[in-house]
Nucleic acid binder design. Sequence first.
DNA 1: AGCCTGGGTTGAATCGATTCGACCACGAGG
DNA 2: CCTCGTGGTCGAATCGATTCAACCCAGGCT
Lengths: 337, 337
Amino acid sequence: MNIGEIARRAGVSRSTVSYVLSGKRAVSEPTRQRIQAVIDELDYRPNANARALKEGRTRTLGLVIPPASQRLTDMQLGFVASVVEAAARADLDVLLSPSGGDHDRSFERIVTGRRVDGVILMEIRLEDDRVARLRRSPLPFVTIGRTAEPAGTSWVDVDYEGLIARCVHHLADLGHRHIALVNRSAELVAAGYGPGHRALAGFGQGVTERGLTGVDLCCGDDASAGEAAMTRLLATHPDVTAVATINEAALPGLQRALEAEGRQVPRDFSVIGVAAAHWAEDFHPPLTAADVPTLDMGAEAVALLLERIAAPTAAPRHHLYRPPISLRASAAPAPPR
Amino acid sequence: MNIGEIARRAGVSRSTVSYVLSGKRAVSEPTRQRIQAVIDELDYRPNANARALKEGRTRTLGLVIPPASQRLTDMQLGFVASVVEAAARADLDVLLSPSGGDHDRSFERIVTGRRVDGVILMEIRLEDDRVARLRRSPLPFVTIGRTAEPAGTSWVDVDYEGLIARCVHHLADLGHRHIALVNRSAELVAAGYGPGHRALAGFGQGVTERGLTGVDLCCGDDASAGEAAMTRLLATHPDVTAVATINEAALPGLQRALEAEGRQVPRDFSVIGVAAAHWAEDFHPPLTAADVPTLDMGAEAVALLLERIAAPTAAPRHHLYRPPISLRASAAPAPPR
DNA sequence: AGCCTGGGTTGAATCGATTCGACCACGAGG
DNA sequence: CCTCGTGGTCGAATCGATTCAACCCAGGCT
């Protein structure tokens, strides 16, 4: 069933039906009603491909997610969900591409097959092949996260550096002298994963500013890895009384290891972090943390992308999120020595 | 840059270029190489919309997920990830539709706009509007989960009824006499959510077969709800010594409440469930559970869908998963009275 | 009465592919 | 030498929309 069928049944030309659909030209009321009646009766909806072909836009956004092999963190999931929802609100569909490297077939299809009007990229590295690839293409895109050289690109990101520095200061204020940073996995950091490096920088900065001693360690993105990492930390650095972390997925494991070693949070040991908002509240004990507003960020990423699609030559914009640290129950004054 | 451009540069007709691309007709080797060279040089890729328009298929699958407002459970996330990955392996893209009810705009776009070749539906209710809608349409579809009347539809599902019954038997074997079922949220169950009802049936069956006393309760899909539910349960039914559950998201909360009440798992209290495979292992203590193979199920859903797309009139197939219960550390003999 | 204006409608071109039938040249077979 | 077959190529139709230019006709104005 196509537009011609509607036209025939309504006794008008195809163009008139099109104008009823789009409202781009005046159509007399009787004709309009007649056509609309046929459309309703047959439950007609224009073929999206034909429309996309002619109009040159697909009303679809591409979202590049980490390959499915690795489980999404809560924060990533929050981004995906909010991007999808924001797109749906704008009557846009979302095409998913689970892409790791640069020369991924799915990624190439999306970028070069004109299947989408724009792309949102996640899990950005300081040097990112995919970003480089998109910069060379005419396709508008926005990143959640940013490269080492983010000027010239629209992005949203979390100020991990500043936030972790603030966490360190908070711990210092509470009297902690020996603290640790639990980073993301060693592979991610080695690959130049932005938040990992920026968190490390912020940690170093905070530690030196306050004259603390700090250890940093990498840790896989799951509870078991967290448990192992924390067990090792407690063994090798028994004087550490607090950790800051950007690794939400490891948190349950950290907690478990502390319990196993008889360290009670927050009485004996403080935990503070940067985490998706709901995570922190749902944790036990409720986590003192900078609550990353994944919902807002995803929506903002979509908004920025729509801007770039509407005006590709306009100056790119960005939004660095710096949520305040919500004081909950997982950080407390350092235990007496 | 379109196929005409390539043809012009190579000095051939558009059809010849098309035949090089598709290989559907013989092209002399010199011509083929010349054309291929131009294609490579310009990094040309055919416009997906034009192709879809002509061919009548989009090489895209639709995946209908629960609306973004509610967070995805681990099992749902597992399904999404594996569907996306399986589709990518088959060089198919996945279009996401976050749809709750029947008359969702995004859902309608997908179903009727010919944007996808087929649809995978999740979170199926016993009476499901979306399934009914798709049955009326010519679009092939597969469900993860099944309705009350699943004949005539291709689906994959977990045998919640049988599995929960087995869980009950296992608990009975261990000597537990008073057990509880922690179901999904009251709203879901009230809405006719399949697993909720089937788990309840299996629970009832097991309990009567073994002459146990059983309580069942609904519980929201998050840790706090789980904590509240378990606290209430322990207060109202102090003689309960074990729970079975299909609500993975509530598990951390159940655990917390038990701890708070001084009940140690599994010494004083057993927990057993049906959960995504990785969840169970990552839990603490490692969860005795029927491990739902989300990866296989997503891949199988895609395979079934491809079958239906290839042969829409063939008899629908299905696959009911009945994973064995993996004995881990969360269930043990009932404590002495 | 003739002309102009403009709302309403239509026909035809176009987007970028695929594919069928036709055509051409060349070599084999009678 | 003529015909037939065939590998290789091309032209044109087609998929289902959008949109521009043209046209028609009714009403207002001079």
